[in-house]
Design a protein around this nucleic acid. Structure first.
Length: 395
RNA sequence: GGGGGGUUAGCUCAGUUGGUUAGAGCAGAGCGCUCAUAACGCUUUGGUCACAGGUUCGAGUCCUGUACCCCCUACCA
């Protein structure tokens, strides 16, 4: 080890301590994880310390002053968490330019005196990043004294662990992005990661859990619903949504049951309670199977083809509804379902509780056609799960 | 050392401002169905809510202490 003497720039965030604390405390609905970490840094020990924002590294954004070399700052770069959040702003400028918006458009997102007061700004991050987003970046913005928009809500997460331990790139322990998408479609990962998001404490990824979650929730509950419906309809009525009777009590009851759960789902989404939302969504999917099971179109068709056709038509409407409300969790599958119903060109429509909810289940109409569809999800076999567990166990 | 989070059924987790018999999914058991990826539906067995005190008419829910797990407290991000 060699000690060297070096001079750095510091963000004098200690001067903003009271202002930051007042701001943190004004955000009453933030996750406890977020505020507790912020307060710990603010209050503990000597309170918020000034933080160096430059580093002696040979890579990074060079420290310059107004585009010119800065005496004493040669060979220095900015510390990433000083630099990176500023790119949140600059990326907005690039984005607005790419959309050919007028040159000041980005300001309506970032400056309160240019309309950013109307913006609801949410950040998502794991707990190790919380100090930079609750303290140093806000300090940077506040210190500039220019009416910069501060974040409205910080969704802090705990960590994801791997088979009871830490992920480790060096030890090749765990699955990483470069391999994950070669192994399974992105919706598999999305579903597991979201329905098991580390919201209250660290969450542990295990292949056993992954396998069970994907097979049960996606393949059995949602995938099988689509499969049994489309295959039955195809074999009995062909590709056309059949003429049938009008909806009766069973359909209306099913709609109101769905409406009730959808309300909770909608609320969980608004409050960014991800696990809770996922479980509501899963419950709504399962109502599809319950409906079919209780309606027994395979029995009824023997005596009353129009009655069975009604069941099929309603079930297709459930299917469309499922695709619309599943889009945040499994967008690729949602699109597959819409494509099957030949409605892929229609924009995903988040159902509104204001509307007549029953009308949502009348969008798939008699006479429309659907495309036969492959199984939405392939199950993960025990052998596959076991060998993956071995493959990614690390050194 | 200081601090944060967690500890609820075999497993993963919900439990709203403390209020009567603590919930869900998975796993287990039984029954049913056969359209479907042996999938689906119905019923059902599992909990002295980590432990010990305390406050209260009443605590998983509040307070104190203890134990265990994870994390933060790096010129690594």
């Amino acid at each position: 080890m060699e000690l060297i003497k070096t001079e750095h720039l510091y963000l004098m965030q200690s001067k903003l301590k009271d202002q930051l604390l007042a701001w943190i405390e004004s955000n009453k609905n933030w996750p406890i994880l977020t505020t507790s970490i912020a307060k710990k840094w603010l209050i503990d020990g000597d309170g918020l310390k000034d933080r160096s924002i430059t580093r002696d590294l040979n890579w990074g954004i060079p420290v310059e002053k107004e585009g010119q070399p800065w005496e004493g700052m040669e060979n220095k770069v900015f510390y990433v968490w000083f630099d990176a959040p500023i790119a949140y702003i600059s990326s907005t400028i690039d984005w607005a330019a790419s959309k050919k918006m007028h040159s000041d458009y980005w300001k309506s997102w970032w400056l309160n005196d240019h309309g950013a007061k109307d913006v609801h700004y949410v950040q998502f991050m794991a707990k190790d990043n919380i100090p930079f987003h609750t303290l140093s970046f806000p300090a940077t913005l506040l210190g500039a004294n220019q009416s910069w928009k501060l974040v409205d809500y910080i969704k802090g997460f705990n960590w994801l662990t791997y088979e009871g331990g830490k992920f480790s790139t060096s030890q090749k322990r765990g699955v990483f992005m470069d391999q994950a998408l070669d192994l399974f479609p992105s919706d598999y990962w999305r579903w597991w990661l979201l329905s098991n998001a580390p919201e209250t404490s660290d969450a542990d990824f295990t292949w056993t859990s992954f396998q069970s979650c994907i097979n049960k929730d996606l393949a059995d509950v949602l995938g099988n619903f689509v499969s049994r419906l489309t295959k039955f309809a195809l074999s009995k009525y062909g590709k056309t949504i059949p003429e049938g009777k009008k909806y009766t009590q069973h359909e209306f009851d099913t709609v109101s049951e769905i409406e009730k759960i959808f309300e909770s789902y909608d609320e969980a989404m608004t409050k960014i309670e991800i696990r809770k939302a996922a479980s509501h969504l899963r419950k709504i999917w399962s109502i599809g199977n319950e409906y079919l099971q209780h309606s027994q179109p395979w029995m009824i068709i023997k005596t009353d083809k129009a009655e069975a056709a009604k069941v099929i038509r309603f079930a297709f409407n459930l299917m469309l509804f499922f695709s619309e409300i599943s889009e945040p969790f499994i967008p690729e599958t949602a699109t597959k379902i819409k494509t099957c119903l030949r409605k892929s060109e229609a924009k995903i429509q988040w159902p509104s509780l204001e509307d007549n909810f029953t009308s949502i289940f009348e969008k798939v109409k008699v006479g429309e056609e659907f495309n036969p569809i492959e199984n939405l999800f392939t199950k993960i076999e025990d052998g596959q799960a076991n060998s993956l567990e071995e493959q990614f166990a690390g050194n």
